[in-house]
Amino acid sequence: MTHKRWFTPWVLIAPAAVWLVVFSALPAVNTVILSFTDAKPLGGGGFVGLDNYTRMLDDRQLVDALVNSIVYMAVCLPLLTFLPLLLAVLVEKRLRGITFFRIAFYTPVIASAVVVGLIWGWLLDDRGLVNGMAERLGFLSGPLPFLTDRWLLLFSAISLTVWKGLGYYMVIYMSALGNVNRELHEAAAVDGAGRVRRFVSVTVPGVRNTMLLISVLIAVFGLRVFSELYILSNGTGGPGGRDMSLVMLIQMYGQGLTGQLGYASALSVLLFVVTVGPMLVLMRLNRKGA
């Protein structure tokens, strides 16, 4: 025995166990139950069978939201898998001042999505810096509607996500680079392999598992996106509400006194179904020590 009283471990675990049950397990079960009801914040809650699920099939906004997620993934996946690796290699060497650069590159990660959303909203405004510069340099004759066009708004949110994600994935790669075989690098250098060649044939294979881990993380993130789209569209979901994400729909239907908790819960179940596959892959990768 490593402890005298049998209940000692349980006393230590108790707070975490309570939180696990109250804020994870119960809500998970309750989400499924609610999804079969017409629950509202005040009253309601009768069993409605699959109504909430059949309703999804006719939900135009849901189709848009899923299309938006796929576009999100298609753009973010290649960019956020490779650019942060290049950054990690760039900050790897202990040059003078490198700590400053590392912190600076990580700053967008620690800033709230609301803060960076408002900053980007100002940059991409019709009369903001980006349009102003582009017009002044003669690239544009009038402002591009970054925040009021259905597709431009989506791509603005995507670029915000990429910009904010660079440092996050850079740090994960930095951690992985520490384990890349140094001797292999040196041997390749002695054999006359150039920098690019060594990057392609030593660094990239060395961090292959991490790359996989990161692409799954990004795929899941594309389905979970909320703040970027919410802030850039000022809560409206863009022109005609076409720039919604699945989570924005959940928030919209779930919130307030008129909320439709049943439908919001059904959408939550859908979110779980589309993310659980990638999440399981992620956990397997993590356990393998990617």
């Binding site: 402890h3 049998w6 471990p9 349980w10 675990i13 975490a16 166990a17 696990l20 109250v22 804020f23 994870s24 397990a25 119960l26 809500p27 998970a28 309750n30 989400t31 609610l34 899941v220 389905l223 979970r224 909320f226 989570v247 959940i250 928030q251 779930g254 908790l261 919001a264 819960s265 939550s268 179940v269 979110l271 779980f272 993310t275 659980v276 999440m279 399981l280 956990m283």
Partner: peptide, 29 residues
């Protein structure tokens, strides 16, 4: 202690659940 393995399994299992999935039910609670 007895039950430590299942307990650990439960803690791990919560990780596959994105927070947004349970957010409405969390609000209800």
């Amino acid at each position: 202690f007895r039950g430590s393995k299942p307990a650990l399994g439960l803690f791990l299992a919560t990780l596959v659940l994105p927070g947004e999935v349970t957010i409405i039910s969390q609000y209800v609670i």
